[in-house]
């Protein structure tokens, strides 16, 4: 091929057959990188510690909760929490349910869909407890776990792991990073759920989740499960980078992109060297 005159730097690659693919590839990397940085910034969960028992036992909380309910929840759940065509009744769901839904940001719901998504909480911990106190005042239901119920320090990790695999893994996956359910529903990742939220979810069974009451899993067993989930959150990675713990799908993806990609480039490099 004859050389073209007056070309410098990258401009000589402009017409290379691979130019478009390379530009597209770089563009995708940059876009996805920026997106990932932006998306990760929003998912932090931090709650100030308040005296939950004191707020729950304060009769004034019920009134405060009722006012919050009327402005934030009544549109869908009805002025007296009796429910309407847009939302279920909350009579009898209990304080634990309210605390789980509101502290994880699922309620108030942003938009209807296959599943209510976790997002940044809209209420402070104090307001959340006031809402819980109001709903609990309507009719008894599962209560917010006490400090003793959440004291999982002495739990049996191995037993918890086995219970996790037997009761939780089929939806939340072996690694607790969640999994897909039917018709767009999903079991969420447990990696950002707090021990209190995990406990509340077990006793209230939000959305598609079954209820694990004390007859199904006793307190000690619940503690074991919480201990194992907490272990999974920052367990060591003896095998190295874990590719999101999604199992063979991400392993295959890694092999076909980075693995085969690198070896093909080496093969091409050796082939070019020959000329």
């Amino acid at each position: 091929m004859a050389k073209r005159s007056g070309t410098v730097g990258f401009s000589k690659y402009r017409k290379h057959p691979a130019a478009l693919s390379v530009i597209l590839f770089l563009g995708l990397i940059v876009t996805s990188g920026v997106y990932t940085l932006g998306a990760n910034a929003a998912n932090e969960y931090a709650r100030s510690s308040v005296d939950a028992a004191a707020i729950m036992n304060d009769p004034a909380s019920i009134d405060a909760g009722k006012r919050l309910f009327a402005t934030g929840c009544a549109t869908c759940h009805g002025l007296n929490a009796q429910g309407n065509s847009d939302g279920p009744t909350l009579i009898g769901v209990g304080a634990a349910s309210v605390h789980f839904q509101v502290s994880s940001g699922r309620m108030p719901m942003a938009s209807p869909g296959a599943q209510v998504m976790r997002k940044k909480p809209q209420y402070t911990e104090e307001q959340t407890l006031q809402l819980a106190a109001y709903v609990a005042s309507l009719s008894p239901g599962p209560e917010i776990p006490t400090a003793a119920q959440l004291n999982w320090a002495g739990a049996d990790l191995a037993e918890g792991a086995e219970l996790f695999r037997a009761n939780c893994a089929q939806c939340h996956s072996f690694s607790g990073r969640g999994g897909a359910l039917t018709e767009g529903k999903y079991a969420p990742s447990l990696m950002i759920a707090t021990p209190q939220q995990i406990y509340e979810a077990m006793i209230t069974g939000p959305q598609a989740m079954p209820i694990f009451n004390d007859q199904t899993l006793n307190l000690e067993e619940k503690h074991g499960i919480i201990a194992y989930i907490e272990y999974l959150k920052d367990s060591p990675n003896p095998g190295g980078f874990e590719l999101g713990r999604y199992g063979p799908v991400t392993e295959g993806l890694f092999l076909w992109t980075i693995g085969m990609g690198a070896l093909l480039m080496v093969a091409i490099w050796i082939g070019v060297k020959a000329k």
Binding site: R165, F174, E251, W256
Partner: peptide, 10 residues
């Protein structure tokens, strides 16, 4: 027992 995300190798 079974886990969500049970997959074979590629």
């Amino acid at each position: 027992q079974v886990t969500a995300g049970s997959q074979p190798d590629w």
